[in-house]
Design a protein around this nucleic acid. Structure first.
Lengths: 354, 354
DNA sequence: TTGTAGGCGTTATCAA
DNA sequence: TTGATAACGCCTACAA
């Protein structure tokens, strides 16, 4: 049966001091307290096994010490890394991390936002991919709520292009994709396919943008039939593979740029099932450099965007916003560098067996 | 600049009723309230954009609606799946999920437990692997704290063998490992290596137990040189590979049972780097069936223990314990079935190229 | 059916 | 330095 925990009143009583003094020593405030009083309180607390009630404390000081990270799915390696980064710095600063899976569903995103407002979360980090077009009703409610949350003094940060007005930290999707594509071109590839992410997801569009720019700068015409729809999943990569193999021989690409690593894995698997050899028959690359990328065979050429660091930076930003919350947060965007990781899934055009 | 949110007092005032009535309708209690009063409160709340303060509410009703999941590392696919399961049912029941990475460090585990006690978390789910031997000082503090947490009325559940006294839900590690090993034997393998998990981690020991039993029952003598240390990581698998290739030819196994999938991936990679072909030269299998297992080449034979379901069951258990917290929670252990997943990384002994 | 008032556990203000 | 005491926002006897 549940038993009550001692409160600070009990501690004060036992120590023979007022609650005020007891509170002052327990909350490690800078307020002066005599050495003897401090000792008495401390030992009383120890004997009683006193545990401060953070809920009461939060209620009083108007700070919950709660940071939430909104992700599409925490089991997705992309989000998992980001969440890990968030948790690391949050924990290091005495904050608890609340994990919110939105499943990329605006409805659930809204619902979580509401709950987080209820709990007076100090910080909210949007990692779930922002959409480039927004006209559905939930979105306007979200925008409204976000504003209210900010007015309350909570800090909001986005980690991808997002319609909401908040400071943002992002990976260099465009630059990374550009560099990757340029690398393929430097290997002699001219027909390079691109497997997209889900429809209207901003990071996917950014990566495509980098791809397009590299091609254009190299004077290579864009071939619409080489833009293949994907959805960031392995299954999506597999179906992209079956589209690829059905292309007439003269339209076939010699390299494919998958919008993320998972898609690349699905692609590799699908192509193999159709009898293609990798990388002999086609070069493949991904984006994200999730841990598995270096483990598959052939190891995957990709772009590292240090997701964990992204999460860390996001949490840092939240903390710094919380420091000086008198100022309005300016919706600036900070870009974290991306790095090309050359591995074995891409080979020179001339080495291909065709 | 931060602005105050309206409280229920404001709502009551605006609606022209008492706070009691306002509270009754906002907290959707069963207490009778007239239709007109209800309407007035509702519309006042809407106009004021009232947001109930969960902190205050929790403080009052002595329930935080917070569930924590302690994992080794949320980016590890194993824990990620578990956490996902927890979040799903927690969210469905109006609970927030707190993510705690312990890094398998008892010190951090203790520290998180303390914080969770501070926040009066309603439920705590231990997913971080329990150790089979416990004599270090942190552990005794943990046991003590766990007891206090339970006395408070919070629910604690473990998802692996654990020294702490709490209800537990576990995958059938022994049975799964037994079945897997028996399968290898049925394929004609006699020399089967086992790559362990980290030292003294209980689930690793359980899997080894299943392995040993299957071998013994088949009358196959155990070969100490075939027990190779690992640590649940790909790097561990890679170093296991280099040990393996150094074995004198006559001692070489024809199959390897890696204690988890990640180890198996590292193993595959390492063996390949030494020029071995898979599965022609050696059969490999893992344990866990993480999503990547079916994507690698060759696809990995493994044991599925539906981690997500494990997380769900854990959260369910917490909720049911919370329901009737008058009773002392009996430290029962529920076992979730494991399922053998046959794929292409294992082939009959006779098909091997030796 | 409604309202008053006390208390959940802290912190902070203000006197002493 | 210390100590009453009033909040923080909510719920819930208890009375009316």
């Amino acid at each position: 049966m549940p038993t009550q925990l001692p409160s600070i009143v009990d501690v004060a009583k036992k120590a023979g001091v007022s609650v005020a003094t007891a509170s002052r020593v327990m909350s490690s405030s800078t307020y002066p307290v005599s050495g003897t009083a401090r000792e008495k309180v401390l030992s009383a607390a120890r004997e009683l096994k006193y545990v401060p009630n953070s809920l009461a404390r939060s209620l009083k000081i108007q700070r919950s010490k709660l940071i939430a990270v909104l992700v599409g799915d925490n089991a997705d390696p992309y989000f998992a890394q980001v969440a890990r980064g968030v948790e690391e710095v949050a924990n290091a600063h005495g904050y608890l991390t609340i994990m919110c899976n939105t499943g990329r569903d605006p409805m659930r995103e809204l619902s979580y936002l509401q709950t987080l407002q209820d709990y007076r979360a100090d910080g909210i980090i949007f990692s779930s991919s922002g959409l480039s077009e927004i006209d559905y009703p939930e979105q306007v409610q979200i925008d409204e709520l976000v504003e209210k949350i900010q007015e309350r003094g909570a800090a909001i940060v986005t980690l991808s292009p997002h319609s909401i007005k908040a400071p943002s930290i992002q990976s260099d999707n465009i630059g990374g994709a550009y560099e990757l594509t340029a690398y393929l071109i430097s290997l002699g590839h001219r027909r390079i396919a691109f497997v997209t992410g889900p429809d209207k997801v901003a990071v996917s569009e950014q990566r495509q943008q980098g791809y397009t720019r590299a091609l254009t700068e190299a004077g290579i015409p864009l071939s619409p039939e080489l833009i293949i729809p994907g959805n960031f999943t392995q299954a999506g990569g597999e179906s992209a593979a079956s589209i690829l193999v059905q292309l007439p021989t003269e339209q076939r690409p010699s390299a494919v740029f998958a919008c993320n690593d998972e898609t690349a894995f699905g692609l590799m698997n699908g192509l193999r099932q159709h009898g293609w050899r990798l990388p002999e028959d086609i070069s493949i690359c991904g984006f994200g450099d999730i841990p598995m990328a270096r483990m598959v065979t052939p190891s995957l050429t990709t772009v590292s965007i240090s997701l964990r660091q992204l999460g860390q930076a996001g949490a840092q930003k939240v903390l710094s916003l919380l420091q000086n919350k008198q100022q309005e947060p300016e919706p600036t965007t900070e870009i974290l560098p991306a790095m090309l990781i050359k591995r074995n899934s891409t080979i020179p055009y001339s080495s291909h067996a065709n």
